[in-house]
Computed example of a mutant assay.
Amino acid sequence: MTDEHETVLLVDDESALVDLYANYLGGAYRVLTATSGEEALEVVSDAVDVVLLDRRMPDMRGEEVLREIRSNGIEPQVAMLTAVEPTVDIVDMPFDDYRVKPVDKPELLGLIETLLERAAYDEHSQEFFALASKKAALEVGDADDTDEYEELCVELEEVRERIDATLDRIDTRGAFADLAKLS
């Protein structure tokens, strides 16, 4: 379910593409746009829920923009939306999803809905989905036979185990005690 108060920042140096994506999203979200990394850093704030960020921009690369956003303590969901095929260099980038352009309207809307849903998850679950997105991107980019990919898989399994341990600690009877009283 979308909410017109949810804000999406589109960042791409191709203004025609920014306009197209803004048109796709305009009826469902509050849309902010930037056609450079520096402009994106001026526009982004805690009010932004999702950032769609191009990797290749002439003034400032997308990963630089992303690191600056994170270093400023701003924590929107970020998807790298780019024509750059993923390689192992993405493993250390603090994004939440990675998509290779072109994307159509249903894919773009689905991506934003997924990112907004993930934002409601706890920190471990968000980390899990970010790692799973990187793993999938590397598999699509045929970079799944590298040491970095293997390390990512290990990290993903460790996060999965932490989530499972947390779930195991939840007392099912206690969690559902109120339901038992109703029957």
Results as ranks from 00 to 15, higher is better:
172 T>Q: 11
134 K>H: 02
101 K>T: 13
136 A>C: 09
123 E>H: 13
89 D>F: 07
154 V>K: 07
129 F>W: 11
141 G>V: 05
88 V>C: 10
117 E>N: 09
167 L>Y: 02
169 R>A: 13
114 T>R: 11
128 F>R: 08
151 E>K: 14
102 P>S: 07
154 V>I: 14
116 L>I: 06
94 P>G: 08
114 T>M: 14
171 D>Y: 03
152 L>H: 05
90 I>Y: 00
125 S>G: 12
124 H>G: 01
119 A>K: 15
162 R>C: 05
165 A>V: 02
134 K>G: 05
176 F>I: 13
91 V>C: 13
125 S>C: 13
170 I>S: 06
91 V>D: 09
110 G>W: 03
167 L>T: 00
145 D>A: 15
162 R>H: 08
127 E>A: 11
128 F>I: 02
128 F>L: 14
156 L>V: 00
86 P>I: 06
103 V>M: 10
97 D>P: 00
129 F>T: 01
99 R>K: 12
119 A>S: 14
89 D>S: 14
103 V>E: 02
147 D>Q: 13
128 F>H: 10
151 E>H: 15
143 A>K: 08
147 D>Y: 05
138 L>W: 03
96 D>K: 04
121 Y>A: 06
143 A>P: 03
172 T>L: 14
139 E>N: 10
140 V>T: 13
113 E>T: 15
88 V>L: 09
112 I>N: 02
117 E>Y: 08
105 K>F: 03
161 E>L: 15
130 A>L: 06
91 V>F: 07
105 K>E: 15
166 T>A: 07
95 F>E: 02
169 R>Q: 09
89 D>W: 01
163 I>R: 07
104 D>L: 02
116 L>N: 05
131 L>H: 11
132 A>Y: 14
135 K>Y: 08
103 V>F: 01
159 V>C: 08
107 E>C: 03
140 V>N: 11
97 D>R: 02
153 C>T: 12
134 K>W: 02
105 K>A: 11
163 I>C: 04
131 L>Y: 10
91 V>S: 11
173 R>Y: 13
144 D>L: 12
100 V>F: 01
97 D>C: 05
102 P>G: 07
86 P>N: 08
118 R>M: 06
168 D>F: 11
173 R>M: 11
136 A>L: 15
152 L>T: 06
144 D>Q: 12
